[in-house]
Simulated assay, not measured.
Amino acid sequence: MRKFFGYLLSPIFYLLFGIIITIFHPIQWLCLKLGGYQGHKKCVDALNLCLLATYYVLGNTIKFTNRQNLPMDRPILFVANHQSMYDIPPLIFFLRKHHGKFISKIELARGIPSISFNLRHGGAANIDRKDPKQSIAEILKLANNMKAKNWSAFIFPEGTRAKTGKIKPFNVGGIATILKKVPDVLVVPIAIRNSWQMVRYGFFPLNPFTRMSWEVLEPIEPRGLNAEDLVARVEVSIKEKVENNTRETKI
């Protein structure tokens, strides 16, 4: 029955999603030209709020929990598991005051209205996985901006989406580079649950009536830890949250 409603509601979702990113594309350009970084950022925040609203067209719900008292005077590296492309708008919007930038694959930086524009002009590190030198250079550029501008960053260390919600092993590389170049960074894990259910049938139909959640977990102070140990701690904390929830809900 849910799949049946998915066939009915998915075209409406995609129509609204497409209209939003198409409308915001020239608005982003205008905000960047007239308002610089701050103007562009406010536009991107509004864009992601509108994208969040489309989730409810499917009857899906979003729960974002942040009980942590996160600092504003130092950069933060948010490390999250990755279940679908729909992981991203809640992260951008609900953590907007931290100026988080994504480490993203370069393919997304072209061809997608609004989204590609933001990746190219909003400070993201757009990496080419086939070119290690380019990838390192992009991450180093982001790290330098984190130090100079007190920006934060989001990284999905699994590398690719976990299509069944089961967490894949975390990669150390990008995290290690940022830890080395931004010594005062604070590492904050985020557990994402059930967003994979939204795309359990693929891009069409989308799965409706899905309860999705994002939870900011206890920060980890990286001082005194090597990158491998730190990433292992982050992975364990996220896995515990995600797997406990999976056993409890069994959607």
Rank of each mutant, 00 (worst) to 15 (best):
M1F: 06
F5D: 00
P11V: 10
I12A: 05
F13K: 11
F13S: 04
L16S: 11
F17M: 10
G18F: 12
I20K: 02
T22E: 05
T22W: 13
T22D: 05
I23V: 15
I23W: 04
I23Q: 04
W29C: 10
G35M: 14
G35W: 14
G36Q: 07
K42V: 01
V44Q: 11
D45Y: 12
D45H: 12
L49Q: 12
L51T: 03
Y55D: 06
L58F: 07
G59Y: 01
I62A: 09
K63L: 10
K63D: 15
R67H: 15
R74N: 03
L77A: 06
V79C: 01
Q83M: 03
Y86M: 11
D87I: 09
L91N: 07
F93H: 15
F93D: 07
L95H: 02
L95Y: 01
L95F: 01
R96K: 14
K101C: 04
F102I: 13
S104C: 04
A109K: 13
H121R: 12
A124L: 10
A124Y: 14
R129V: 11
K130A: 13
D131G: 00
S135T: 05
I136R: 14
E138A: 10
E138S: 12
I139H: 04
I139Q: 05
A143L: 00
N144H: 15
M146I: 01
N150V: 14
I155M: 06
P157H: 07
G159D: 14
R161T: 14
A162Y: 02
K163C: 02
K163R: 14
K163Y: 04
T164N: 15
I175D: 07
I175M: 13
T177Q: 12
T177W: 08
T177I: 15
L179A: 09
K181C: 04
P183C: 02
V187T: 06
P189C: 08
P189Y: 04
I190K: 09
A191L: 08
I192F: 08
W196T: 07
W196C: 11
Q197W: 04
M198C: 05
V199T: 14
V199H: 02
Y201T: 05
F203T: 15
F203Y: 15
P208L: 09
T210A: 03
W214F: 07
E215C: 04
E218Y: 10
P219F: 08
R223Q: 14
A227I: 08
D229W: 00
D229K: 14
L230V: 07
L230R: 06
V231P: 03
V234E: 01
E235L: 01
K241Y: 06
E243C: 06
T246R: 13
R247W: 12
E248H: 13
K250F: 10
I251T: 13
